[in-house]
Design a protein around this nucleic acid. Sequence first.
DNA 1: TTGTATTTGTCCGTATGTATT
DNA 2: TAATACATACGGACAAATACA
Lengths: 244, 244
Amino acid sequence: MARATGIAVWTRIAAQLREDIASGAIVPGGRLPPEAALASRFAVNRHTVRRALEDLARDRLIRIEHGRGSFVAEPVLDYQINLRPRFSEWVRRHNREPFGDKLSLRMIDPADLPECTIIREVLGLAAGEPVLELLRRGTADARPLSLSRHIFPARLEGLHAALLNHATITAALAQIGIADYLRLRSRITCRMPTPRECALLELERDAPVLHCENVNVTAANTPLELCFAIYPSHRVALIVEPTA
Amino acid sequence: MARATGIAVWTRIAAQLREDIASGAIVPGGRLPPEAALASRFAVNRHTVRRALEDLARDRLIRIEHGRGSFVAEPVLDYQINLRPRFSEWVRRHNREPFGDKLSLRMIDPADLPECTIIREVLGLAAGEPVLELLRRGTADARPLSLSRHIFPARLEGLHAALLNHATITAALAQIGIADYLRLRSRITCRMPTPRECALLELERDAPVLHCENVNVTAANTPLELCFAIYPSHRVALIVEPTA
DNA sequence: TTGTATTTGTCCGTATGTATT
DNA sequence: TAATACATACGGACAAATACA
């Protein structure tokens, strides 16, 4: 890296790294070369490289992890928690192509699920009344963004077939005559992902996930769905804007 | 554990463990004896104990961790993300005694903070304009619930002294003539805690924390505060109830 | 980094009592 | 009475995850 151009060397190194990232030479989530390697590549002292990396980190283009290395930050999609939960609309608003992989769909007695108590209470189910459980993976431009478990009362006529036939939940519900549905309440926590979740989300084992428990109702305010969703925290942030 | 009482053995073991937990014989967050130990204590097979533990886990009284053991769940405080962020009121509503440890208070140039860009943008600061940074630990009945960094424009007259003199932010702001302040926007992510955060929150290092970036404004809608807060996810859940 | 002990998870099979048919 | 299904309880073996030296 030539000197004496009137621009600080670290600035030009930072600019070069920005280009490397923007061009995709280093994939989002990927690791940058160690500081020593960068120093020799640019023929500067390691401290100069560090100054450049700090600059990128400040702009959140990379995250520097003590003892591990520096990693290109993945672009974070902001998900606004508002009245209508609509995965596809959200992703499309960010100019990405949404897709919902249906992983499984089955009818089951909630007693066989760990969330039995909550499910019965929220959906107002009698003992032994079955539910439909839909497992879904949401992707944006083929990058996994969410894993969700949707629990519906099985008594809803034709829902099983509708969920199989339509790509989105909104469309499936519309087919059985539910034109609109609303978020009543969301409960947000976070936890570490299971190995299976890591595989499905293409996630490292040490990256926590946001966990949302959503209660959704029809426009007439009858309980419709309980949804457990997880989001890799490096890819999704939840936005809340209180209105009243 | 005597048999032939008409009630399943595992049911009575579960009931006994429930009592042990309710009575405080095992503290919240504490570890239950291993399955083998419980099996010998109750003089039953390990499978019978497992059946009882599954029952408790289903009710979220304990969490079972593969290879580690079973742990008494800590009570989770639901924190409703509504228009007014008020730590003390929230904790008191759960019948616990709130306290805010002031860890540090300093005036600083935001350029020296990693969140420089956001701070300047949100608070509408000119380059070089300093801010007040307050570090705070929130506890409920002496149990750490939150660590928060509050960033105020330093230009607010008398705020430094007011923050030192009052136990709550609400009271400090009231003293300098800001009778009300509102949440404009919250951005929720999660991450692993740093060792220092673990120490302050009395947290295991493998427990993720919820991270909230809150933008708060005055009643007149002028930018007032940027607040970065973390909450141990095993102790706090965030509740969102969209209203419009 | 590696090996070992601990602990939970899952599977196999067997036997028994109870309720239903 | 007999056949069947089901929940309960036990015993053993091994896999998988974790903790620790």
